[in-house]
Design a protein around this nucleic acid. Structure first.
Lengths: 125, 125
DNA sequence: TTTTAAATCAGTAATCATTCTTAATTTATA
DNA sequence: TATAAATTAAGAATGATTACTGATTTAAAA
């Protein structure tokens, strides 16, 4: 991967926030630094950084993709009131499937998706 | 909600599978029964059934929406080999955050998203 | 340093899942 | 039955994301 100003700016923008932003928000921020950057460049570099393991997509929000420079395994809470997406670290998640109060927040529902190999594919030679 | 043949067919198709199908797959199946049904009708009725709590959308798959007539709280595994989406019941999930073998399947990663109220919104009067 | 090939870019068109619109039909009910 | 509300089929519109193109930048060889 060659170096590129644009990719660095995209990555820096993402590292500079905890808000799990959308591609378009990152695009707007990146333009403050590089007014000529195009939306396509932001999307392409987000995809490349994702492939390189430098960021993750936050899943299960049901709208635009969200990005996160924190690649450690952690959960997210989507607030139905303000729409913000906030982190929960494994320590917070001792009672993962307890619907109700959790660490000052209120969990009403959750979505857990595993990625890997199903029974059949895992037990096939 | 008035009765409608189309909505019943959409619901019956979804109840008749455990494959967590996409809207388009449901559309194709529904046309076997009602050749005149339109794609928009399938989408609209899926949305209405969702609002009525008769089905759920499966989140976090990173592609088209998937639907599930099983509205109980359970997890899903997306297989990277065959692409299938299979259920995990709460009983399977005792060691939820154990990456590795789980019930014969192989969990390589997971995504957990809570829905509810964030700290601020939950503690605001 | 120059040269050359590969990578990346800006701009924009294309894609594709989903939603919206409209005029016609069906359903519920007075 | 008559009337109003709900639903439909068909297809246009939307909007996030991806693909394409010709120009520019980067890396590394000569």
């Amino acid at each position: 991967m060659n170096k590129s100003k644009q990719r660095d700016v995209v990555y820096d923008v993402l590292c500079g926030t905890v808000s799990h932003p959308t591609a378009d928000w990152i695009y707007d921020e990146a333009r403050q630094v590089l007014p000529e950057i195009s939306r396509g460049t932001v999307y392409r570099n987000l995809k490349e950084l994702l492939g390189a393991g430098k960021l993750i997509k936050v899943e299960g929000i049901f709208e635009k993709d969200r990005y996160d420079a924190d690649t450690s395994l952690h959960a997210h809470l989507v607030c139905r009131e303000c729409g913000s997406v906030v982190d929960f670290t494994p320590i917070d998640m001792e009672n993962v499937f307890q619907i109700g109060q959790l660490d000052g927040a209120c969990v009403e529902n959750y979505s857990l998706v595993y990625h890997g190999l199903c029974f059949d594919c895992n037990n096939k030679n």
